[in-house]
């Protein structure tokens, strides 16, 4: 086997391996890319935080795939349920949420953000910053946001600078479903 063909096989192997590892994103430069946090029969658990101005709320979010999308359930650290949301490429369904989050504008924004993280439908440009974080941009105008994903820590930070909102998400553990 020549050196050239050996390198070709190595490159092909790397591409296959990277697409199998759905939590590790590759910079593909602007086409449909796999979601940041893959969900299937495994329930993902994430340390979740949201800041709006001086107000901060944190907790734990759980994610599991459904027939046509992903279901997200978040609770505060104290155990109070925050929201129960179903995401799909066609839209979202807010199953339940705490009063102060019950505003359509907030959920349209969060749907856009969570879709970029949990649904494989991003079509924009993906780039890397100097720290090696993967960077995506979503939304338009005042609702535009920047998503930064650290492949080592698997932590995601979302910033909507025009409205002063920040969201952080970091996996805690994954757990097999009991059903």
């Amino acid at each position: 086997m020549t050196h050239a063909s050996l390198y070709s096989w190595a490159a092909l192997l790397l591409i296959v391996v990277s697409t199998l590892c759905s939590c590790n994103r590759t910079v593909v430069g602007g086409t449909l890319a796999p979601e940041i946090y893959a969900t299937d029969s495994i329930t993902g658990r994430y340390d979740f935080g949201i800041e709006m101005g001086k107000t901060a709320q944190g907790g734990i979010m759980m994610a599991r795939s459904t027939d046509n999308g992903v279901r997200l359930v978040a609770t505060s650290y104290f155990g109070l349920s925050l929201f129960d949301l179903t995401l799909s490429p066609e839209g979202y369904k807010l199953n339940n949420c705490i009063d102060f989050l019950d505003k359509p504008q907030i959920w349209q924004l969060l749907y856009n953000d969570f879709s970029l993280l949990f649904l494989p439908q991003y079509e924009g440009k993906i780039s890397k910053d100097k720290q090696g974080n993967i960077v995506m941009k979503g939304g338009k105008g005042i609702a535009s946001g920047k998503i930064t994903y650290n492949p080592q820590s698997q932590e995601t930070k979302i910033k909507h600078k025009w409205i002063g909102m920040k969201i952080t998400l970091k996996p805690i553990e994954t757990k097999q479903t009991t059903e």
């Binding site: 329930t43 658990r45 734990i60 759980m62 599991r64 279901r71 359930v73 609770t75 650290y77 155990g79 129960d84 757990k175 479903t177 009991t178 059903e179």
Partner: peptide, 15 residues
């Protein structure tokens, strides 16, 4: 020990 039971997923979050 805090056990948050989420019935939808039939799972507990333990803190």
């Amino acid at each position: 020990e805090q056990i948050k039971h989420i019935d939808i997923f039939n799972e507990d979050v333990i803190s």
